[in-house]
Write a protein that binds this DNA or RNA. Structure first.
Lengths: 121, 121
DNA sequence: CAGAATCCTCATAGATACTG
DNA sequence: CAGTATCTATGAGGATTCTG
């Protein structure tokens, strides 16, 4: 099986530090949000994702999904139908991001609380 | 006390999803690596950090540190000496990133193993 | 419905040289 | 030693239009 080529930001990250690999894979805007929703919602269609992340332009969302697919995090299934249907789901590797998502989510909330504390104090 | 203004990527992330906040704060190249080393090494001087992340240009490293400082993750202490001495350490908020670093690090290793598996299989 | 093609703008980051 | 200033290049991401 022909594996997808590893994107160059990831190759760089691999040489620097394992923590940078996650940043390289998830660094694009919305990527982690997409992963989070796929973790929660299982399989989702393109339109579902667009509605879930309305701030992302369609072009950007598509690109992010393609990169996540290339990086082995997301699986893309195309149904040969009219009108077309495409479903996205997490690979095993992608499902392994659950801990990352949880840690990020928790810290994000701490950060929010921190900001609120600054304003209220 | 006058709080640093919240950088715009973070403001956007706050409106989208808590997981994006972490990405917004740590998204710059080397940032998570810096945090990881500060977690391990405690206080570090600029030169220490430069040597720890030799791939980063000095200008970039300085900017990243300033942003981390602005975001409340890193504390910067300047000693009024000649030659100058500047020490960086994590704030409480920054120390809270330990779980994120651990999760990222673990997943980065899984990712490496995944790539190796592809080549070996 | 899903996405490709085109155009545009701004932020990021590197290299280099200089300063207190 | 730590940092700033300047210049440059790359690319990420948005808006819009078009197609099977």
């Amino acid at each position: 099986m022909e594996a997808d080529p590893v994107r160059s930001p990831i190759r760089v990250a691999l040489e620097v530090c394992p923590v940078e690999v996650g940043i390289a894979v998830l660094g694009g805007t919305w990527k982690l949000t997409v992963v989070k929703h796929l973790l929660e919602g299982g399989t989702m269609r393109s339109g579902d994702l667009s509605r879930t992340v309305p701030q992302a332009s369609q072009r950007t969302l598509t690109r992010q999904l393609r990169e996540l697919e290339q990086d082995g995090v997301v699986h893309r299934r195309v149904y040969p139908e009219v009108p077309p249907r495409v479903e996205y789901s997490l690979t095993e590797l992608g499902a392994g991001l659950a801990d990352v998502v949880a840690a990020m989510n928790a810290w994000g909330r701490v950060y929010e609380a921190h900001l609120d504390g600054q304003n209220t104090a």
